[in-house]
Amino acid sequence: MTTQPEQGHELVPRPERTPEAARVALARVAPHRLGEMEQHKEQALATAIRDGKIGHLQHWLTHWQVQVEIERRPELHARHHAALAAINETGDRNAPAFRTAMNELHAVESEARQAVSA
């Protein structure tokens, strides 16, 4: 795991870009999501074998690096949770509140993706 701090408080250091490091970090910050991670890994592996493309596994790892980044940074986690709650409460895809919440969700995921790809 790296030890370079980001702005604000972090629950754990950012993990190295390996499946095991991502799993260990997720186990520390969101152990309830380990089953989801494992199921997604099995799907990515099966698709990679079927298609003969490693890109499915690379996408899986990037997805979970982003999820760990969101979970390990309380301010990102709070924004992510609030955006998902607003999306679920709105129900109407045409409502301005829905679009605002979707924009925030994309902004949080983009910030996390940029952080893990730096």
Rank of each mutant, 00 (worst) to 15 (best):
E10N: 10
A86D: 14
S110F: 07
T47R: 15
A118E: 10
I49D: 10
A27L: 07
H56Y: 12
Q114H: 06
A46H: 11
N94K: 11
H59V: 12
I54P: 01
V68Q: 01
E111Y: 00
E104S: 09
A27P: 03
T2Y: 14
V66F: 07
A95D: 13
V108G: 04
R73P: 01
E20W: 05
M1A: 12
E109A: 01
Q4R: 14
E111K: 09
E20Q: 15
A27F: 06
A97N: 05
P15R: 08
A44G: 07
I54N: 12
T2W: 13
T3N: 13
E20N: 10
A83M: 05
P13N: 10
A118W: 08
P5E: 13
E20I: 11
L61S: 04
G8E: 14
Q65L: 15
T100Y: 04
A22E: 05
N94C: 02
H40E: 00
E71V: 01
G55F: 03
E10G: 09
A101L: 08
E38H: 14
V116Y: 05
G8R: 15
T2H: 15
S117Y: 00
V68F: 03
A48D: 11
I70D: 01
S117N: 09
I70Y: 02
L105C: 05
H56D: 05
W64A: 01
E69Q: 12
Q4T: 14
L34W: 05
H106V: 07
P74N: 08
D51F: 02
A44P: 08
K53C: 06
K53N: 15
A30N: 10
V29T: 10
E42L: 15
E36A: 10
P31L: 00
M1Q: 05
T3H: 11
A101G: 04
F98E: 02
A115K: 10
E20K: 14
W64R: 07
H77Y: 08
I49T: 14
P13V: 13
H59T: 12
M102A: 07
S117R: 12
P31R: 03
M102Y: 04
P74W: 08
V108C: 05
L11V: 11
D92M: 03
A48V: 07
T18W: 09
R50Y: 07
A48M: 12
A82L: 05
E42D: 11
I87Q: 06
F98L: 03
L84V: 07
V68W: 01
Q58V: 12
L11N: 06
V68Y: 03
L76T: 03
V24Y: 04
V66L: 07
Q58S: 13
